[in-house]
């Protein structure tokens, strides 16, 4: 796997405000790469520098071997872009936009029709842009980003404003892009989205990248804590669980027992302990940390704060 996007030492300031600093990472061919971080962290700035829409003050960027600044038109032909904030002409019809975009990239507009179908916009093809709902506009922009079957797709906040059903449809669409060997670079606020969709994520805060890895590796590295919560009326249960090496704390409240510890083996150990000691258990669940917890740990606050 060779990198399709290479970013090194990028810095971008707006006046005295440093939006992005010392940002370096690589995105590999055929992966879904996510940039996650709170509002104002510098996600859009980073993405738009890579797309050639903004010029960084410092640093080097290469996309598909092209310089986004010098070769901007060559690059635009090979990538697809969905901007976080964009509008079309108020009175342009959905099919006219699809038609125009298809022509600009030298594609068949019929592909556009299929995209509209996939994105649930087929019955809106004659509607003016201004009459679309927020989610419908968003879906149209995603269709426009995909119309040239791009080698790299950039999606900035791809599911903002979408209902759960549309969100799932778009996740499937994005996975489909990866299956066809294309690369996806996205930003999101939704940790669930990053976890389900991305092969690797970079966490960015205050314009700097804090860590980059597979979501699961990030969780394992930063939040190794695991908890098992179970219910048992066995009076000796808590005692037995305390004997498990990985169990750090065991707390009881009524019949509910919470076992906290570290490492992937904790859950197995607990199950083994239950079966060896024939402990009667009426409820059993595990609490595993997720990206949200990683985020909290790394930045000291939740992504929504």
């Amino acid at each position: 796997m060779h990198p399709v996007i290479q970013v090194s030492g990028v810095r971008k300031t707006y006046g005295s405000n440093v939006a992005v600093d010392e940002v370096s990472f690589e995105v590999n061919d055929g992966e879904i790469f996510g940039l996650i971080g709170p509002n104002g962290a510098g996600k859009t700035t980073t993405m738009e520098c890579i797309e050639g829409l903004r010029t960084p003050d410092r640093g080097a960027i290469s996309v598909l071997g092209l310089d986004p600044f010098r070769d901007v038109y060559k690059l635009q032909n090979r990538i697809g872009v969905q901007l976080q904030q964009a509008q079309l002409q108020k009175r342009i019809k959905v099919w006219e936009a699809i038609d125009l975009w298809a022509l600009l990239y030298g594609k068949q507009a019929t592909d556009g029709e299929r995209l509209l179908e996939q994105l649930g916009l087929a019955d809106k093809r004659n509607a003016w842009f201004m009459t679309l709902s927020g989610g419908q506009k968003q879906r149209l922009f995603i269709a426009l980003a995909l119309i040239n079957d791009p080698e790299v797709v950039f999606l900035d906040e791809l599911t903002t404003g979408l209902d759960p059903q549309a969100r799932r449809a778009i996740w499937d669409l994005v996975r489909g892009i990866r299956e066809r060997g294309k690369t996806v670079f996205l930003t999101t606020h939704l940790m669930e989205e990053a976890e389900r969709l991305c092969d690797r994520v970079a966490i960015i805060e205050h314009g700097r990248i804090i860590d980059i890895d597979r979501p699961q590796s990030l969780v394992n590295r930063h939040c190794p804590d695991r908890s098992v919560v179970l219910a048992s009326d066995d009076p000796h249960a808590a005692e037995r669980f305390r004997a498990i090496p990985q169990a750090e704390t065991v707390t009881c409240s009524g019949t509910q027992i919470t076992i906290r510890g570290r490492g992937d083996d904790l859950v197995t150990e607990v199950i083994q302990c239950i079966s060896e000691n024939r402990i009667r258990v009426t409820d059993f669940r595990t609490i595993l940390p997720n990206l949200e917890d990683v985020f909290l740990k790394l930045t000291g606050h939740s992504i929504r704060d």
């Binding site: 038109y73 872009v81 964009a86 509008q87 600009l104 990239y105």
Partner: peptide
């Protein structure tokens, strides 16, 4: 209006000159 609404920007992110 096109500039303020981000329409120009959206058009720029295409091969359109």
């Amino acid at each position: 209006i096109y500039r303020e609404g981000g329409i120009l920007k959206r058009l720029r992110a295409t091969p359109l000159r």
